[in-house]
Design a protein around this nucleic acid. Sequence first.
RNA 1: GAAAGAAUAGCUCAGUUGGCAGAGCAUUUGACUCAGGAUCAAAGUGUCGUAGGUUCGAUUCCUACUUCUUUAUCCA
Length: 932
Amino acid sequence: MQYNPTAIEQKWQQYWEENGTYKVSNESDKPKFYVLDMFPYPSGAGLHVGHPLGYIASDIYARYKRLTGFNVLHPMGFDAFGLPAEQYALDTGIAPGVSTEKNAARYREQLDKLGFSFDWSRQVKTCDASYYKWTQWIFTELFNHYYDQSIDKALSIAHLAAQFEDSGNTKVQAATTYEGTFTAAEWNAMSKKEQQDILMEYRLAYRSVGYVNWCEELATVLANDQVKDGVSERGGYPVVQKAMWQWNLRITAYADRLLYDLETIDWSSALKAMQSNWIGRSTGAQMFFDVTDSEEKIEIYTTRPDTIFGATYMVLAPEHPLVEQLTTPKQEAEIGEYLDYVAARSEIDRMADKQVTGAFTGSYAINPFTKKRIPIWIAEYVLIGYGTGAIMAVPSDDERDQRFAEKFGLEIIDVVDKSDYPSATLSDKVGKIINSGFITGMEVPDAIAAVNAKVEEMGIGTAKVNYKMRDAGFSRQRYWGEPFPIIYDADGNAESIPVENLPVELPATDDYKPSKDGQSPLSRLKSWVNLPDGYTRETDTMPAVAGSSWYYLRYMDANNDEAFVGKDAVNYWQDVDLYIGGTEHAVAHLLYARFWHKFLYDNGLVPTKEPFKKLINQGMIQGVIETIYYQKSTGKYISADLANQYEDLVSMPVHIDFVSDYGAEHSHLSAEGIAKYKEWRSEYKDSEFVLAEGSNKFYTKSEMGKMSKRKFNVINPDDVAAEYGADVFRMYEMFLGPIEAHKPWNTLGISGVSKFMRRFWDLFFQKDAFTISEDAPSKEELKVLHATIKRVTEDIQRFSFNTCVSAFMECSNDLRKLKCNKRAVLEPLTILLAPFAPYTTEELWHLLGHEGSVHDATYPTFDEQYLKEDSIEYPISINGKKRATASFSADTSKEDLEKAALANPVIQKWTEGKTVRKVIVVPKRMINIVVG
RNA sequence: GAAAGAAUAGCUCAGUUGGCAGAGCAUUUGACUCAGGAUCAAAGUGUCGUAGGUUCGAUUCCUACUUCUUUAUCCA
C-alpha cells in the first residue's frame, strides 16, 4: 500500500476529535507536566512556516511526556489584542473584534492540520470578555496593593491607610514615589483628595504624569520605534515629548526578587543575562549638593562616591525641574535653544547618537568635600528617568564626563591611580585614591565605604541601591485593548470597580481614530464615559502585555467563572515545566509575567514563586527573498547574469511562486514564470524581459531575509503539508537544525525526509499488503532497535530534535538492509516515532492490530545488554598513527591485548629494530604503541 | 568598545569521561523507463577556521588570533 498522508491525516484528525484524545483532566493520579507555547497574535497573513517550529518541538516533548506516563497540559490560545487589528480597522472600517475572530479561526484550522495535541477546550483569547474580566481583576488587585519592603511582600492599601491613620508614614517601608513625611495627625487632617493622591503614589498600579511621543499632525501617540530623527516614520511629521497622565505598574518594587530568583530557574544564560541587565541593579550613594546663592539642593546618585574629590561640575537632565530656576538671565537664550533641540529628539536618538551636546545654566553648586564652586550644566546624556536625573561629573574617571569636559573646557582632576591594575578600564572599580583629602591612599572599595559613612555623618545623603529598570507605562491611548476597571469621582479620585461588576466591556464603536488631544477613541463615547452618578470612566486601554502576563494560569482552568483560576487547578498544575518561544519576548513579556506571578504569590493565589521553570528560545526560520532587476530608464527587466552589463538597475521582490528552483543558486523565471509575472499585475502585462543569448532562463537574485508579505516570500505550512504530509512537515522543520538556531527555509531538503517517511512505511508492507512477521528478532535487529531507542530518548530529553530525525533515518536504513519486518522491532519503533509523526504512526498502530491510540501507548525503554558487542575491532597505532586493526573478544584482558597487538605481523614490521617504550591499551577503544 | 554562542564534506547539521571523522540533501555512475520523474543499487569528497600549548595521542582540553551570529548599547 502506498503511503498516502492526506487520507490518513483526515481520518485520524477526526478520530482524535471524536474520542477527545487530547482532552486533559485536572484530576489524575499521574504526575503533571505542563508544556506551554508562546501564544500567537493572529495576524491577517496566517501562519507561515516559522510559527510552527516551536509548536512542533513542544508538541513532540508533550507527546513524549505523555507516553512516559505524565498527565500533560499542552494548551493553545491567542494573544488577540494589539495594534495591527486596530490599524486594519482604521484602513478598512472592519471592527477589530471581527477581523481578529476570523484570523484566529484561520490559525486554528492551520494548527489542527499539523497534528498538534492541543486541548482546545482550554483555549483562551485575550480579547474575550470572559478572559479580560480577570485581567482587569488582577489590575484592580495591583491597584489595591502596595509593596511593603520590611517583609518583602505586597500588602493591601487598606492596611497602609490604617498605618497612616495610626502613625503617619515615617515607620512605613514601602516602594513609593512619594518623598514627603507626615504624622498621623497630619494624615487625618488631610482631605480625601489629598489622601488619595498620596495613596496613589504607593499603589502597585498607579497613575502619574509620563511622557509620550506625541505627533500633532497625526494626532496620535507613537511608539519609540515609530519615531525616527524626531519625526514620525509615517509622513515625517514633527514629534514632541508630551506630558500625559498615564497608568504605570510598579515593577521596580519587585526588582530584587526578579533578579535573584533568576538563579532558581532553568533558562539560558543569555536570557538571564538580558533580564539581569535590564533590571540593572547598582549600589551607590544618593546625596545633596548645595547651590550657591540659593536654597535649592541638587540630589544626585553615584556608584562612585570615592571619586567625589574629582567632581568638577554637575549635569542635570534637560527635563530636570530645577533647570528653569537655576538658569541665570544671561544664559536664558542658550538654555532655551538647547531645550528646543532636545525636545525634538526621541529617546532612541538620544541613546544612539554619540555627539556631545550641552549648555551652561549660569549657576554653581558646592562640592561638599572640596568646598569648591562647580558649574551646573544641562546635557542630554543625563537621563531624567535614571537615578535622580542629575549627576556629579567626574571627568577623570568617567568616559562620558571626560568627553564632555574636554569639549567644553572644564577642569579635570585625577583621583584614581590605576597603575597597579594595568588591564583595568575606566569603569572598573579598582585603583588607589589620590588628590582626595582624607581618603587619599585608600583602595577604591575602602574609599567607597569611607565616603558613604562620611556622607551619612554629614547628613547630606545615604547609601542606596538603584535600578536601571523603570516602572513602564501601562496606558495606551488606543481602542483595541482591555479597558481599565477604573472610574473617577468628581474630584478625580480613582476607584477600582469591584469584581462583581467586572468585566468592563470594551464598547463598540465605528471610529477607531484617536481623539484630537491624544485621548483614546473611547473618550468620544460620552454615554459610556459619563456614568449617571457623576463618575467618569478611565478611557485609556491596557497594552498587549497585560493579557499575556497571566494567560498560562488561565489554561489550567479556562472556563472558570468564579475565579481567574480555581484553587484546585492551580495547586495541581503549579507552574509551567517547559516554555518554548521566541527570543523577542525575552524582556517585556517574560519579566511582566514573572512580576505578576510573584504578586499573585504574595497574595496566596499561586503556589510557586516563578511561573516558567524551564524556557527554550526557538530560532527564527528565515526565507529567501527573490528579486529581479529592472532598468528604470527603459522599463526592461534584466536577467541577473547580465546585471553587470546594465546601469541604473533597481531590484524588485518577485513572488516566489513564479520562481523555479527557489532558493537555489540558479533560481530563475522560466517562460511560464515570466508569463505568470505578467499576469500578476495589469501594469506588468507588456513588460520586456532580457535574457542571456541562447538561454531560456531569466535568473533572479536570491538573498536571505525575513518572511514577509511585502517580500512575497511567505511559505504557508498548509501548502507544504498538502504536498508532503503534515508528519513530513513536522519532521522536516525539526531536521533543519537545532531548535535555538536561526535557519533558512529551504525546500531542497524536504524530499529526504519524505523519502524516509515512505521507507519507514514500506517496512510494514510487502507487495502492497500489510505484512508483519511474528518471529523473534535477531541480535542485529535488536541492536538497531535499542540503539535507536537510546539515541532518540536521550536526544528528546536534551531537546535535540534534529538529531532524533537523523537517528530515525539511520535506523530505517539499517532495518531495510536487514529486511526486517518483525513486530517485536517495528511496534516499539512506531511508538518511538509517534511524537514526531502522530498521524502515520497512528495508522500503523491500528494496522498492527491495536484498538486504542498509539498516543496512549507505553514508551519503549532500551536495554543496555542488546548494545553490547561480542567482539571489538581495535585500531592499533604506532605513535598515535593507526597502522593496523585487529578484532578481539570484548572481554580480552589488557595484558592479552597488549601481547596480541605486539605480535601482529603488520605491527612487528613497524616495531622492527626500534624500542617499544610504552603500550597504551584503552579497553574497548584502541591500542597505541610508543616506539623510539 | 562589551557579553554570549558558533566555525567539521559543495549545503544543512551530528559527533563527551581526549582514542578508526558521519547523517540527510546535493553531485556522479548504473538499473528500471520511448523519455522524464519517482524508485532501486553503488560511488566520491574533509589541513575538523588559523597558530601555539598540554598529552603516547587533540575535531574534542587550554591560550591567542581570524571570521560570523545573537544581544545590549550613554545607567552616573
